[in-house]
Nucleic acid binder design. Structure first.
Lengths: 208, 208
DNA sequence: ACCGCTCTTGACCAAGTGATCAAGAATTAA
DNA sequence: TTAATTCTTGATCACTTGGTCAAGAGCGGT
């Protein structure tokens, strides 16, 4: 038989516009949520007409899923790099630090996920139950090992991970509240990082 | 002059239906957010027709604001009752416990606020900068006093409060993720309470 | 029983929104 | 240059949704 029909390659314009769209979609979806965002908003935000945008992504939901998947991988990288061979306190401290800086530098991604999960995680439910659960279970086992060796105080590893997620992402997801209460001083995130690492490592009860 | 015109009292039916509406509105708004929720949904959910519902609250936003205000007070009660005369560790432990149980028993209120703040807190921005900030500042001062007396480790009180809010509300706001990762065992919230109190008090670093 | 007031609703409207389509403009490979 | 392919858009549709309105039903005080 002859050559198989060439699979349609991605055009220069295609790649370029899809990138534009995903960037604008992150902006809009993170600010207004899936229902709250409009296709027109996204189109205008990246300088395309609405029908043109729908030429690249046929349905609004396709854009949403694409931008979710596009950011998910990066978001979990810090946990992935938790090193079983490292020193436990140092590893977890580093994880907290990396995570809080990620929230500071990419609050939109944080809010996008927060909104998605807050409303039932219908688009990424399968991902949570599959790859995410696997990754968390793996890292929880590592932490459990450290605890068994007496190198960490006894805490449930899963809940520890939840606590780190919650506290670090809080600064992105609840930014208006944080700003309202603190008045948003310039050293806010610096102080947050210090306080969280210290709190998780040392706890509140004074030592000896 | 004669008697001032009597201010229109609240009818039996009025009070009854407004309560119905607020209950249904909490349900719907917490699940779908402000934009995602429809007036029809709320009306159907409490057995009223849409025009009838709009007879009691003229605009969708009025319902939203009403249900927010209706729940705000209760939500802050635990922090309000943090006792400056109490034993610091016991007070904070109690606060964490109360807060996590509130999240467990009223996750809808938690998600309602989470959604509101996540999307800019336009409806309660003034409240955050006013009464909430005052309350938090007051309690932060108390905690700072405890630290100065050497009865707590040195942490920034505001960020400590944020950490407690974030970790406890996480179980309501991110429930699908928590469920997906843990498989939702029956003792989940029990374990969460244990882990969080222990983590905040003792920290991760083993003691001597 | 009567009357004023409150409550309820079917019908309707205007605006907004996701999505389609046909036709034309731009790009690309020969 | 040319012809096929990709890209772009104005016009339009079907549907949803917040909100209105007039007319009637129900209720409470006398």
């Amino acid at each position: 038989m002859g050559e198989a029909k060439t699979i349609p390659r991605k055009t220069r314009i295609q790649a370029q516009n899809e990138e534009l769209i995903l960037k604008a979609a992150l902006e809009v979806f993170s600010a207004y949520g899936f229902r709250g965002a409009t296709v027109d908003q996204i189109a205008t935000s990246c300088g395309l007409s609405k029908p043109n945008l729908l030429y690249y992504f046929r349905r609004k939901e396709d854009i949403y899923v694409a931008v979710l998947e596009h950011t998910l991988h990066d978001w979990l990288e810090p946990l992935r790099s938790l090193d079983p061979a490292g020193e436990p306190i140092a590893e977890i401290t580093r994880y907290i630090r990396t995570k809080i800086r990620l929230s500071r530098d990419n609050p939109k991604a944080s809010r996008l996920f927060a909104n998605e999960i807050l409303h039932g995680a219908t688009a990424i439910g399968a991902y949570l139950k599959g790859p995410l659960k696997e990754l968390v279970d793996e890292k929880a086992t590592i932490i459990a090992g450290w605890i068994a060796e007496g190198r960490l105080n006894t805490v449930d590893p899963h809940h520890l991970i939840f606590a780190i997620w919650a506290t670090t992402q809080h600064y992105a997801d609840f930014e208006p509240q944080v700003t309202a209460v603190t008045g948003n001083p310039p050293d806010l995130m610096q102080k947050a990082e210090e306080t969280l690492t210290r709190l998780f490592v040392e706890g509140l009860r004074p030592r000896s």
